[in-house]
Design a protein around this nucleic acid. Sequence first.
DNA 1: CGGCATCCGGGATGATACTG
DNA 2: CAGTATCATCCCGGATGCCG
Lengths: 133, 133
Amino acid sequence: MAKDRHWNCGDPQQHLVWAEATTDALRVLEGKWKIVIICQLFGAKEPLRFSELERRVEGVNQKMLIQQLKELEKDGIITRTVYPQVPPRVEYALTDLGKALGPAMAELIDWTYLRRETLDVSGSAKQSLSATS
Amino acid sequence: MAKDRHWNCGDPQQHLVWAEATTDALRVLEGKWKIVIICQLFGAKEPLRFSELERRVEGVNQKMLIQQLKELEKDGIITRTVYPQVPPRVEYALTDLGKALGPAMAELIDWTYLRRETLDVSGSAKQSLSATS
DNA sequence: CGGCATCCGGGATGATACTG
DNA sequence: CAGTATCATCCCGGATGCCG
């Protein structure tokens, strides 16, 4: 994989080059809720309605959700589909470019679990993760 | 790997559970420059001085860099080492928890390359990546 | 009723000058 | 070199209203 082509080359100049490229591309994910939104869409494995997203992205408000969704759509990460009916129904789904973020999101989620395990050695919060049913 | 344990379980309730955990942990990475900073520290494979970071994290200003570094330090992602000498020398390095973000950062960087390839089919910007020397 | 826009206050961010 | 201080600006969040 290309995974190890970046920082395994000794050329420090190369680092600065992809640094710029990375900074530029990461700007697409800039915004308080975007990564969480993408994680949710990826986890759902199917398009989500606006109201679903609003419920799953904990703590977000309508305005911010709309704004971040718009930017994600503009940047080609998600698609927005309107079904002309009453009550209105709008679904959001990942594009191919968005789906390509899957491995990164998976690794991020793995890290969040590792972090949990690191933090509570007492295992207090970890139990709420296994006790789902 | 644990990579596929998250969204491959059909239980939608489980999704909401790790959603909350993820949201919580991702809050540590919240902040306009943190992911870029971590990417830089990871790419450098060695501690970086403040001025180095300032140069590599393109577009950041001193105040923001200091602030985000402080928060990253408080959250156990990086360490801050002061060498008592003149001129002052402060180095920032990833902790174990910070290094554990490596795979995720690598995937993110891979994605930034994929995104580039997707965007400029004409290959205009891609050339600046190979022409480093 | 669900999705979206507008107005306004507060906190995060940015630009610049200054200090040890 | 590595920060701090100050002030301007922008993003975020809540409330409210519109529209199918």
